[in-house]
């Protein structure tokens, strides 16, 4: 464990909690893409299947349980508890455009052709595109509440910190996970234009982010 990965995990947790609290306190999921949240729940489910078979550390196990619980709680709030506030017509991204290539690629490019390994690879590739429905919704509605942009900021920052973690681990312990690194770089690249908007619009105290 290194500071970059710990900071990344904390950012990830903060992002998930920001979103969950926003939905719970505003009792509304307007402006939130339920599809992205479903994809994140699938990412955690397919990645943490070894939750009961592999024990790395108490931290690792606890964080996996927390991420699974919070992501399913978020999906529950969107599609069950506050479903009357869910504007599905804005959440119109075609998930098959993401799932088909990701499933195909995880069968082609993986470390071992075993169910667990393919599901892990699927979760890595899926995570890199899981935010697309949310970013698509923001471009479609042309705006995002500032709390939603803070959620996206921390979510994007977490994988950027993981890249720093991979650089650090490569130089200190020769660790290199090609699939995770390539997918993590792609994932972070998707956030770059958002980061620019976030810094220029939201941090300048504009409150709501309105796209040009």
């Amino acid at each position: 464990m290194n500071i970059f990965r710990l900071a990344g995990d904390v950012c990830h947790l903060v992002a998930i909690i920001i979103l969950l609290l926003k939905i719970w306190r505003s009792r509304s999921c307007a402006g939130i893409s339920g599809k992205s949240q479903v994809l994140f729940a699938i990412v955690f489910t397919t990645r943490y299947l070894d939750l009961f078979t592999v024990f790395i550390s108490p931290y690792n196990t606890i964080m996996k349980v927390v991420f699974l619980a919070l992501s399913y709680a978020t999906v529950y709030l969107i599609y069950m508890r506050f479903r009357n506030t869910f504007n599905s017509e804005n959440d119109s991204f075609r998930l098959e455009f993401l799932l088909v290539p990701v499933i195909g690629l995880s069968f082609l490019e993986n470390y071992a052709f075993t169910p667990l390994e393919i599901l892990w690879t699927f979760s890595i590739f899926l995570e890199s595109v899981a935010i697309m429905p949310q970013l698509f919704m923001i471009t479609k509605t042309g705006e995002a509440e500032s709390i939603t942009t803070h959620y996206l900021f921390f979510l994007g920052l977490y994988r950027a910190l993981y890249i720093a973690n991979w650089v650090w681990r490569y130089h200190t312990e020769g660790f290199f996970d090609q699939i995770a690194v390539v997918s993590g770089v792609v994932q972070t690249i998707f956030y770059i234009d958002f980061f620019y908007l976030y810094v220029t619009k939201v941090l300048r105290g504009r409150g709501k982010m309105t796209l040009p």
């Binding site: 990965r5 995990d9 990830h12 070894d50 592999v54 790395i56 550390s57 690792n60 964080m63 996996k64 991420f67 470390y111 892990w120 993981y162 973690n165 312990e173 020769g174 660790f175 290199f176 996970d177 090609q178 995770a180």
Partner: peptide, 10 residues
Amino acid sequence: FPLRTPKDEL
């Protein structure tokens, strides 16, 4: 590239 260690990352 050096082989990857078991999945110890979240």
